[in-house]
Design a protein around this nucleic acid. Structure first.
Lengths: 338, 338
DNA sequence: CGTAACAAATGAAACGATTCAAAGACGAGT
DNA sequence: ACTCGTCTTTGAATCGTTTCATTTGTTACG
């Protein structure tokens, strides 16, 4: 009783052949005005809705693109996802988002799922070693694009941000406003963080008399940032760094909190502070936080574009697009004066 | 060349009938050990992957549940979504998330899409008036559950949080720690916010000598909160409220920033402050923020359960589950002392 | 009037899985 | 040897589209 009407029901009701109904839906120009109207009327009366499964089965491919991210709660990824969705919509596709939660088995689960769905392509921010699986996918005609990870272009395309450059930009800025003794806060065991540190060290090496010490935060949250901040406050003033570069904004906000709370250190006068990611909270921190912005919209959009490219050239050619991050200066690193 | 092997290819390769391959996949017990092994070997060799479209077509229904939220970037919804995904996974289903962005046409677009996909059911946090459409869906056998919105149980099920109770809890708490002149910050034109205000007013009415003034923030962000905070600081101390209840944590953080930045008002001694939602940043604010926590995991999980119920009873019976929010006390409303 | 040219409509054949009635295989019991 | 019962296996039918070679209908022109 509650089954939806099929194209056959519509055909009967409108007294035409099924092929004609299909043509009304897919090639309206091939159908005469009169029958078109009659068919559309029947569709409305019966409340007909296309069955996408049947359509996909016939087409051999879905209009779906799979996206696997490390954490949907992370603003970086939700922003990338949103951009990808918008770009896909423009192409008449839909993005399905899977959250691996940095777990390789969940990642594998979603890869299986998306393969069963015969997705047009896969965007993935990998946690495990997926090289092998990507090869398999490519053989089966499922183009894959790595997100936020540089790919071997022999294998597949990728979109990423130059983390080393981002680190360089941040440190360079701190040096430019006259600071010499810098500190880096983060967990260098994460690849992206290590690159940012490397960039920062490069900038420091360019300026004589400049130095940078590394403080492993053992975590990437506001709380761990606050711990690092406390340890800085406890130092005697002459042993404190003149500027701190945190590998993400959460850490920076934590550091900021302990510094402002204890009120013995001023930002930016005593210590200049810069974060990374430019999350929404950065601008609305107690002292608006300078940061390195990653072009998340461009990442998402480009990922879809690369997928479309692969689709066109049959997955034979791959490109690695690397974006440059952008320095956003706010009050926490304001003025070289003072 | 790059087409994936079908069940028929597997059957040929393993020298069995297609039905047998299907049985290996779906009812392994019906198949003898020997053939099962042979079939599994062929599957592995050919790299066979089930075609979900064909399976769905035959089954008449997908293993997919649609979820339409107002904003995936909002931690409240991403948390609900996550819980729903987990609960669905346990049932062998998958959740597709659509972001309406508070736009009725996008909402309609996703409803159409999900109908074409023949989803098992629909979870929706409605923006427009969807009553009519939900009736249609019910007729077609697609159960729908309203999320974060109370439903007419004649029509469909729903999961929501008692906003009035949440408002009551917040105001009651402020009164309990001895404050009498309260202020409410928020945009009461939003239904949920209006309910929270109503609850707060109820609590105030129970205590003689207590009062609450409403400050329309004209926005729900940190920045608008800061504006309100500034206006409070400008008042003469005796005209300031003794406690402020903000309709969400972002507003509260904004208010907190302007109060702490200007350093003329102490939290909680001069003004106690409480927010709503208990976002991750609440605990790590300069002064850890008291808040009203909504049981997002329970919302997501229950939404899926209600869907399963409807599926079992054929969509004839509906339930409206209302959760009670929870008061989380932190330093921003600490101690009745002082 | 005949027929060429074109437009519109037809309907059978896929697509790839699942289902299920029927057939086949094999032992045990008589 | 024959029957019965149980366990396996078979393969045609089905789901709802799209596609495309054919058929049917219409108009124009010699």
């Amino acid at each position: 009783m509650s089954t939806t009407a099929s194209i056959k029901d519509v055909a009967n009701h409108a007294q035409v052949a099924v092929g004609t109904v299909s043509n009304v839906l897919n090639y309206p120009d091939r159908v005469s005005q009169r029958t078109k109207e009659r068919v559309l009327k029947s569709i409305a009366e019966l409340g007909f809705v296309r069955n996408d499964a049947a359509r996909q089965l016939r087409a051999g491919q879905s209009r779906t693109i799979g996206l696997i991210v490390l954490d949907v709660g992370n603003p970086f990824f939700s922003s990338v996802a949103r951009a990808a969705e918008d770009a896909a919509t423009a192409l008449g596709s839909v993005v399905l988002v899977g959250d691996s939660g940095q777990d390789a088995s969940r990642e594998a689960h979603y890869m299986d799922l998306f393969q069963e769905q015969r997705v047009q392509g896969l965007l993935i921010s990998p946690v495990g070693d997926v090289g092998q699986r990507i090869d398999t996918l490519r053989e089966r005609g499922v183009p894959t694009v790595l997100v936020d990870e540089l790919a071997d272009t022999e294998r597949c395309s990728s979109v990423s941000v130059d983390d080393q450059e981002g680190g360089y930009l941040a440190a360079k800025h701190l040096l430019d406003i006259g600071r010499r003794r810098l500190a880096f806060v983060g967990t260098p065991s994460i690849r992206q963080v290590a690159s940012r540190l490397k960039g920062a060290q490069r900038a420091v090496a360019e300026v004589s008399g400049a130095s940078i010490e590394v403080l492993d935060s053992e975590g990437q949250t506001v709380l761990t940032g606050r711990k690092v901040g406390n340890s800085l406050v406890e130092r005697s003033p002459e042993k404190r760094p003149e500027a701190v570069f945190c590998s993400n904004d959460l850490l920076a906000l934590g550091v900021m909190q302990s510094l402002t709370m204890l009120r013995t250190v001023r930002i930016p006068e005593d210590i200049a502070l810069i974060g990374y990611d430019d999350i929404d909270f950065a601008i609305s921190a107690v002292v608006p936080l300078s940061s390195i912005r990653q072009p998340t919209e461009a990442l998402g959009r480009t990922a879809i574009e690369l997928l479309a490219e692969e689709h066109d050239n049959g997955g034979t050619k791959h490109r690695a697009v690397v974006f440059t991050p952008e320095l956003v200066v706010r009050q926490s690193t304001a003025g070289s004066g003072s």
